[in-house]
Design a binder for these strands. Sequence first.
DNA 1: AATGAATGAGAATTCATTCAT
DNA 2: GATGAATGAATTCTCATTCAT
Lengths: 222, 222, 222, 222
Amino acid sequence: MAETVRPTFLNLPEDKQARIIEAALSEFADKGYQQASLNVIVAHSGIAKGSLYQYFTDKAGIFLYVFDFAIAVVRRLLVQVKDSTLEEDFFTRLERSLLAGLAFIRQHPKIYGIYLKILFDQQVPQRQELLQRVRQYAADYLHSLLRQGLARGELRPDLPVASTVFLLDALLDRFLQAASIPAFDVVLGLDQANAQVLHTRARELLEVLRRGLAAPPPPANL
Amino acid sequence: MAETVRPTFLNLPEDKQARIIEAALSEFADKGYQQASLNVIVAHSGIAKGSLYQYFTDKAGIFLYVFDFAIAVVRRLLVQVKDSTLEEDFFTRLERSLLAGLAFIRQHPKIYGIYLKILFDQQVPQRQELLQRVRQYAADYLHSLLRQGLARGELRPDLPVASTVFLLDALLDRFLQAASIPAFDVVLGLDQANAQVLHTRARELLEVLRRGLAAPPPPANL
Amino acid sequence: MAETVRPTFLNLPEDKQARIIEAALSEFADKGYQQASLNVIVAHSGIAKGSLYQYFTDKAGIFLYVFDFAIAVVRRLLVQVKDSTLEEDFFTRLERSLLAGLAFIRQHPKIYGIYLKILFDQQVPQRQELLQRVRQYAADYLHSLLRQGLARGELRPDLPVASTVFLLDALLDRFLQAASIPAFDVVLGLDQANAQVLHTRARELLEVLRRGLAAPPPPANL
Amino acid sequence: MAETVRPTFLNLPEDKQARIIEAALSEFADKGYQQASLNVIVAHSGIAKGSLYQYFTDKAGIFLYVFDFAIAVVRRLLVQVKDSTLEEDFFTRLERSLLAGLAFIRQHPKIYGIYLKILFDQQVPQRQELLQRVRQYAADYLHSLLRQGLARGELRPDLPVASTVFLLDALLDRFLQAASIPAFDVVLGLDQANAQVLHTRARELLEVLRRGLAAPPPPANL
DNA sequence: AATGAATGAGAATTCATTCAT
DNA sequence: GATGAATGAATTCTCATTCAT
């Protein structure tokens, strides 16, 4: 893989690096790859136009770097949620994951924004690969939850695993989209995307899932 | 709301209108709003650049017009699927809807493409409103299916309707996305997005849903 | 071969075309291909930057067009000199050619300049091909002169034709270079490249050639 | 004349100097003066960008220094060829010079390349002067050969010396150009510029020259 | 003496929009 | 009503040179 970041950037004082990453992240999240303007990024970073090219090979280089940065943040979250809920049962873990996701996009809206932008933008460099990385994280995460749930007998043993991963992924991802795109309120049945209602809605959804996925209770007389 | 299309356009011979709509639809579906080039559109329509501005107010005007056009096509499909399955039970209607959707994006990839492009593009004019219209159609459609299913006793009577609409919408929409975006293979559990496997997967998913949503069978001894 | 000029340019009023060709020719002759600045060309033509791209596909397109234009001028000269000296003997034709060349570069210094620039500039688009066209004209021209001279018995019949073409080409071309590049005065034996001395020098050179190439006089006693 | 090289450079270890000269020579020979990039030079030299400005005043300074260096190499060759052929007759010396030239450009293509690049590039600093130095060497060299040939009676006594120097210079220089620029094949009468054919062609040319320049043989009966 | 980060002017190219014909 | 030439601001990227450390 070709280099994208120059050592010059990594030698920069941390706060300067942070300012640049922040500016680039904002711009890419706002406009997508092609439409993002390096002029805007340098203006917000307070650096000269030429400097950007001392730091990165080109526009794609900047993008790939901030994307990597963003992915690292997400991955850290997933690992942390997974580890901190190891003892919980499947449905609790699912709920905790969903709530953690909601909290994350509220705290890092640009990171979620950059992912959404890339989803359907053909022009993004190495898009196929970037998307697969993200989706793979999600799929692995859900697989892991499912396996544990099955092992513990919390889920119907005849569950078609692949389809269930897909279903959960669609649901979780869309739920997060709905939380960031007001237009989705209508399919969420909300008048307004406010946090309180979202949480209620989340619990109802999990209830539906529980019915569809959970193992039947043991016969009463046993 | 300001005018977007000029009467001049509507007085044009139908085939000329069609050529222009087709060219614009292709370009917007391919590149998204900002990235679409009017030069490409006029080149493909075989009209002069200046003429475009006799027909529409500006770029946004063209976009909004073809988007309306696309929505009308979708709406016609939904109505038709709804009407032609009135007699079926809920789960059959759902399956037929999903298959109709798959057939539609294979037949009208540009229309589906323009929707996907707009989903997360902040720069699209009146995006909020356009998206709401689309999502509203889907929500209404699913509500209608659900209501009939409940009325006929095919679904658990205690189903939280709004959450279920959301769940179904997420699932159907994501399923269609997966059919057009190879990167989703991984969460679909596919090695390759081929039509045969997609149909199998669709049936498995519906089975999970049936378990989660269907009314319990009446007690045997009654 | 890809298009380089757009019809737009050819539809322009002739004086506007002429101003643009003139400006481009000047700039390319002055700076060579890569170093030439489109900014300078538009400034001298008095047109907007964007207009250049309505007229030509890109920088290479502009260059190739003015090069073609220049070649056409040169070719017209060669044809005219050739035709107007058909009755003369070989050495007279050579002298007339040399003088015509001197007159030409004095009248069209930019056309000669663009040729010189391209000679050693690796970056020129289609350089190999362009150069070959120019050299081929010269070679054909000299071949034609030589053939006639041989046919008329004005030249030694044992003359190695290819080598002689090369020798004449080198001499004529270098002579013209010397006339445009003062630094060559030193190998021309001039203190100053003034027209009078150049003509004298030309005649001396032709004398040397005559001795080397002319057929020996017939035996005296015949 | 303003200083171009700084003492700092001359105090550098010889191998470091050599690396820098080599890198600069390569770049200038490859791209010409303006198009050459100091970035490339520092990258190939393995020194820091700032250091270049400790060693030389500016880009022109670097160029002039390596040009001087290149000229010194050429001059050494000329002296050596001249001295090692003192005993030969004029035409042999000429042939040996031509072959030495061919060998030289094969061995030092960059030095010959930098000369070719500069020949017609108006932007080169002090171009006029640099070119004159080079041409002066060639003229002096040929003058010296001619004088000796005349003194020994190997050449027609009525030879116009200045014109002959010009003729020889044109021929030799163009021959070398032809050896490096494929486009010249056509005036050399070659299908392919291969070394074997070049040598044959060289001998034919010298034969033509011999006829034009050599003194007539003494009357047989004396 | 050596470094390498910073700079900003200038390069080629694109494009929505206007307007005279 | 139709045309298509004209525009200029915006785009990404390069590069010689400066200067604080």
